[in-house]
Nucleic acid binder design. Structure first.
Lengths: 238, 238
DNA sequence: ACCACCAGGTACGTTTCCGTACTGAAATAA
DNA sequence: TTATTTCAGTACGGAAACGTACCTGGTGGT
């Protein structure tokens, strides 16, 4: 439950963009939630119970196929909302979604969320733009997966995570980074060593800290940036 | 222009699904078009002028970044419609879209298309489901790009093309297949030889014919199939 | 304090695919 | 027909990443 006057403290970009008139459809139905790392948000094939507006933390959206091949196709943080299929009118989750970096947010039930989108055109426009931004992110994941080297993909991932966290620390094991990128754990270890040697990051057991973001951006090259710019255009734009 | 009684001959799955009431918003504004191979449909960063309902042929949707890395993220045929961003309320193309296999279809101007979606909720629901299906396709392209071998990705592509064509012939050079998959032309040549040796396809200069579809499905494994099944669920419903 | 476990460092042979490039054959244009 | 271009076949060294596996040191539990 969030009163109109409480909106000041909100970080979530989408919630911020909701107009005062639309706020009644959403705000009063929000429930503050803590989201621990590994907490499951959506399960493939199962109904989506809530949409979740993240404030802190990073959620991973992972595509899975029938033979259990899996790879992360996108991440969601304070700039977006989980439950994209709901926006598209599909109540069923297609992907596995879970918290990769713990945090907090506000959630709203599927029923209220879907009804709000149906009722308010301006709300729908907003959420559709958010979904479109996410779609662009997925496209560029496909591009990076097909064209980029491990090192570039890792750099891209770190930047996307960094965008969505408040500190420079990325509290993740090499193992999890490897699962998300769809590569070997050992491959991630070696790549991180490369970053460390160049002074781009420092590491600790289960944690990695970004020291030179510009340097990491240079490694990622243009595999990073387009979805971020496009989301900005979609939300701020015109 | 297409009168209601002319709908019988339509192959496009989305047009087929438009209700009689909604048809007035779309049908009378359709313009029959021939779509030659390589014909450009959307250019990244430029406004989308039309949505295009394909009847025959296959369109490639290609993600491009600032350094001109490019890879195909999805294909569209008679099961869908080009101009997905329009459905999401974005008038600007993000991807490069062009005909990969020539054919024909019906197009409708952006203005009329967008207005129709705004006006009719049932129409919007239909197109959103189509867009959601396309998003799933992109996700699985990302999965295949990250996890599958060249041979599996080639098999997946051939199956997706085959689904969208009327004959078993795929009139494409190895060069174009390579561009779409983001691999070397020589790599495609070798992979096709493998298929040929196993009796899965026959080849001619600039053309490839599918002989044993089941065999190709076996090669692709579960990298093929999920988006197709999900689209069916979305459109045929529940 | 001890133990069990987990994260990470490292290694090695192998596979896959790349970059490049040359050749011949087929289609197209002159 | 001949010339030209395009497409396909093939080769070779090399880079990238894989699968696997073993070992060490940090961390948390009891």
């Amino acid at each position: 439950m969030l009163e109109a006057h409480a909106r000041a403290g909100i970080r979530n970009r989408i919630l911020q963009k909701i107009s005062l008139e639309d706020w009644d459809l959403i705000g009063p139905h929000l429930e503050a939630v803590t989201l621990k790392e590994r907490q499951v948000i959506e399960v493939p094939g199962k109904p989506i119970t809530h949409a979740c507006f993240l404030e802190i933390g990073v959620a991973s959206v992972v595509a899975v196929d029938a033979e259990d091949h899996r790879i992360e196709v996108g991440v969601i943080g304070y700039e977006g909302v989980t439950g994209v299929p709901l926006i598209m009118g599909d109540p069923v989750a297609q992907h596995s979604t879970y918290m990769q970096i713990g945090g907090s947010g506000y959630r709203i039930s599927q029923e209220v969320f879907s009804a709000a989108i149906d009722q308010s055109e301006s709300l729908r426009t907003l959420f559709l733009k958010s979904a479109q931004g996410f779609m662009i992110q997925i496209s560029h994941t496909a591009l990076a997966n097909g064209r980029a080297k491990l090192e570039q993909r890792l750099a891209r991932w770190l930047l996307m995570a960094h965008d969505r966290t408040t500190s420079d620390a990325v509290p993740l094991t090499h193992e999890f980074l490897a699962v998300m990128l769809g590569v070997r754990r050992a491959g991630v270890t070696v790549a991180i060593h490369g970053f460390e040697a160049r002074g781009l990051v420092t590491t600790r057991r289960g944690q990695l800290t970004i020291v030179n973001r510009a340097g990491i951006e240079q490694v990622a090259g243009s595999f990073y940036g387009t979805p971020e710019a496009e989301l900005k255009r979609l939300l701020e734009g015109n």
